Computed example of a mutant assay.
Amino acid sequence: MAPDAREESSGPRLVRPYALTSGRTESVVDLPIEATLEVQPSGRSANWPEGHMSGRIIELCATSQSVAEVSAKLHIPLGVARVLLGDLITAGHLKTRATISEDTTTDERRELIERTLSGLRAL
């Protein structure tokens, strides 16, 4: 079997996490795991290359997701998710929502905790 044929039949290629972040390990934005994300108009109108991680994140965040949920649903390490999300926030494609404030009700706090635990379990 030719070397090229063996490479094609070996299955999907895996991308190392550091390749997704260009070797960066820290986000430029402080993102707690429970922070929820909202897509901005620039994120909806951007033309992402097929299968590009940023495009996948924007699609996922069309419905409100937490940092932990993005990490779990895209099967990427939490640190990688934070770096990529920070890039999208800095570029104006995503926005974080306040998670807990003085006006947050007990039910809202409970829902946030349940969603965070669900995201962590999925990791």
Score class of each variant (00 low, 15 high):
residue 62 A to K: 10
residue 81 A to P: 02
residue 23 G to N: 03
residue 62 A to D: 06
residue 102 E to S: 12
residue 99 T to R: 06
residue 76 I to G: 00
residue 74 L to V: 07
residue 113 I to W: 04
residue 3 P to R: 09
residue 8 E to L: 12
residue 43 G to C: 06
residue 44 R to V: 08
residue 4 D to M: 06
residue 81 A to R: 01
residue 116 T to K: 15
residue 18 Y to I: 08
residue 16 R to L: 13
residue 26 E to Q: 14
residue 31 L to G: 04
residue 67 V to R: 02
residue 78 L to N: 00
residue 93 H to A: 12
residue 50 E to I: 06
residue 55 G to A: 09
residue 89 I to D: 13
residue 23 G to W: 03
residue 41 P to C: 14
residue 110 R to M: 12
residue 111 E to G: 05
residue 70 V to Q: 03
residue 13 R to D: 11
residue 88 L to M: 12
residue 7 E to M: 11
residue 30 D to G: 03
residue 68 A to D: 04
residue 2 A to W: 08
residue 82 R to K: 15
residue 107 D to Y: 09
residue 34 E to I: 13
residue 83 V to L: 02
residue 26 E to C: 10
residue 3 P to I: 06
residue 38 E to M: 10
residue 117 L to K: 15
residue 17 P to D: 00
residue 77 P to H: 00
residue 48 W to V: 04
residue 113 I to T: 07
residue 1 M to T: 09
residue 39 V to K: 00
residue 119 G to M: 07
residue 93 H to V: 07
residue 86 G to V: 08
residue 90 T to R: 15
residue 60 L to F: 01
residue 86 G to Y: 09
residue 102 E to V: 09
residue 75 H to P: 02
residue 46 A to D: 15
residue 96 T to R: 14
residue 34 E to Q: 14
residue 64 S to A: 08
residue 94 L to Y: 03
residue 100 I to Q: 13
residue 120 L to E: 08
residue 85 L to T: 05
residue 96 T to P: 07
residue 16 R to M: 10
residue 23 G to Q: 04
residue 21 T to S: 02
residue 18 Y to N: 08
residue 100 I to H: 11
residue 37 L to D: 00
residue 73 K to S: 14
residue 18 Y to C: 11
residue 8 E to M: 08
residue 60 L to M: 05
residue 104 T to H: 04
residue 27 S to I: 01
residue 112 L to R: 12
residue 108 E to A: 14
residue 25 T to R: 14
residue 5 A to S: 07
residue 23 G to L: 03
residue 49 P to K: 12
residue 52 H to I: 06
residue 111 E to P: 02
residue 56 R to E: 13
residue 77 P to L: 00
residue 71 S to P: 01
residue 27 S to K: 01
residue 39 V to F: 00
residue 106 T to V: 11
residue 37 L to Y: 00
residue 15 V to C: 06
residue 75 H to G: 13
residue 77 P to Y: 00
residue 114 E to C: 11
residue 34 E to N: 12
residue 69 E to C: 05
residue 24 R to W: 03
residue 66 S to Q: 14
residue 50 E to G: 04
residue 103 D to P: 04
residue 114 E to I: 13
residue 64 S to H: 04
residue 117 L to A: 15
residue 48 W to A: 10
residue 35 A to N: 09
residue 104 T to G: 04
residue 45 S to D: 14
residue 80 V to T: 15
residue 101 S to N: 09
residue 40 Q to G: 03
residue 118 S to R: 15
residue 53 M to A: 10
residue 37 L to G: 00
residue 122 A to H: 08
residue 42 S to L: 14
residue 7 E to N: 08
residue 50 E to M: 08
residue 29 V to G: 09
residue 87 D to V: 06
residue 58 I to T: 01
residue 5 A to M: 09
residue 63 T to E: 12
residue 121 R to K: 13
residue 20 L to V: 07
residue 47 N to Q: 09
residue 121 R to A: 13
residue 26 E to I: 10
residue 29 V to K: 13
residue 9 S to L: 13
residue 76 I to H: 00
residue 79 G to K: 01
residue 86 G to E: 12
residue 26 E to A: 12
residue 120 L to D: 01
residue 96 T to S: 13
residue 25 T to Y: 11
residue 87 D to M: 07
residue 47 N to P: 03
residue 4 D to K: 07
residue 58 I to G: 00
residue 33 I to Q: 11
residue 32 P to N: 04
residue 26 E to F: 12
residue 122 A to Q: 11
residue 95 K to I: 07
residue 7 E to S: 09
residue 2 A to I: 08
residue 50 E to F: 09
residue 107 D to F: 05
residue 102 E to T: 09
residue 93 H to W: 09
residue 40 Q to C: 10
residue 15 V to H: 03
residue 57 I to K: 01
